[in-house]
Design a protein around this nucleic acid. Sequence first.
RNA 1: CAAGUAAUUCGCCUUAUCGCUCAAGUUUAAUAUUUGGGAGGAAAGUCCGAACACCAUAGUGCAACAUAGUGGUUAAUGGCCACCAGUCGUGAGGCUAGGAAAAGUGCAACAGAAAGUAUGUACAGGUAAUGCUGUAGUGAAACCAGGCAAACUCUAUGUGGUGCAAUGUCAUGUAUACCAACGUUUGAGGGCUGCACGCUCGAUUGUUGGAGGGUAGACAGCUAAAAUGUGCUGGUAACAGUACAUUCAGAUAAAUGAUAAGGGCUUUUUCUUUUUAGAAUUCUUUUCUAAAAAGAAAAGUACAGAAUUCGGCUUAUAGAUUUACUUGCUUA
Length: 125
Amino acid sequence: MTFTFSKKEKLKSQKLIEHLFSQGKTVVAYPLRLVYIETTFGDDVRAKVGVSVSKRHFKHAVNRNRIKRLMREVYRLNKGDYFNNSSTQYALMILYIGKDGTDFETINSKMRLLFDKFIKETSLD
RNA sequence: CAAGUAAUUCGCCUUAUCGCUCAAGUUUAAUAUUUGGGAGGAAAGUCCGAACACCAUAGUGCAACAUAGUGGUUAAUGGCCACCAGUCGUGAGGCUAGGAAAAGUGCAACAGAAAGUAUGUACAGGUAAUGCUGUAGUGAAACCAGGCAAACUCUAUGUGGUGCAAUGUCAUGUAUACCAACGUUUGAGGGCUGCACGCUCGAUUGUUGGAGGGUAGACAGCUAAAAUGUGCUGGUAACAGUACAUUCAGAUAAAUGAUAAGGGCUUUUUCUUUUUAGAAUUCUUUUCUAAAAAGAAAAGUACAGAAUUCGGCUUAUAGAUUUACUUGCUUA
């Protein structure tokens, strides 16, 4: 039921992104890094997510697109396990900080690890 | 058949599951659902030329930059086509930095005494005397001469700037020029404070409304056009004209994807089988070598992702494909 990933779940507001990078907290599971912050949206969604890949490490747009698509796909398939019971709303930004190419399996396992850490951090607060 | 030259076309496919985005229809409080569309030959580099938009703009000259045989083509070009010349190649063809050296400045590897403020050596001639004269020698070139303009320069021609993050429309919040109404030196309002009193600042003022400006954001620009395909006509060609058909991405932290299974294609290696040829042999057979075909396994399946739109150029690219031509060999 929750495998969709529509426009409303994407992080698009420039203001919010600036706020996120200046105030947000960080969790790392190499080669991924998650920046997150509690916030509120007008919409009825639990989290808004953006993904990013450094232009410095991946010169060609094809490779950047490939990694961003993989990250979005993995988030789409796994988000039900982490956000269904959450009551607060989060703005998230997932960054790929590795320098080499990757595949679906590594991104999948690393992102599950990343969100395990994220859940642990937020439940402590 | 082999080696090559010039061009052409293509550049993975199918199914299942889960998604993304745009348009249209139906439907809701959010939305849901149906149907259809959804990357390239270079979308890349951003190197030329245009369209379009805004800004600037009397005229002329200088500077800077670009171009450089002749003719044609185009919306335009520094692109493209044809021809001439030079040059490389046996050839098909390739390449060209193809204006000017009697305007001036500068440069010239190797060789050579010296590549212009010079004149050495040897021999010969000549003089009062002297590189004064000739020859030899080096070199592409050795003094009333030439080469180089991928050196400055000169000549001719051309060029305003910024790019869709252009530009236009709407506009929440915050601060506020200006205008109006109301309040206010008989103290409005602010600060200290939970409130009152009190203290203090205080007319460059407070509240409300209008209005302007235009940040977040939204919409337009924004995809039907110098469009694409096929045929015919004109032209050596680039290209032009014409008839018919087609509608073919519009995202914006930026869609066009992910996973699984199967199939193509390619190359090399390994293994197996079959056929042919040759060699060895105990001449039924067996073994070895070479070539071809089939099958199996493994590996590979490129370069690369629209961002206002076109015409070019340049660069990257696994592999496949077709056409024309050249050279060599063989056969008739």
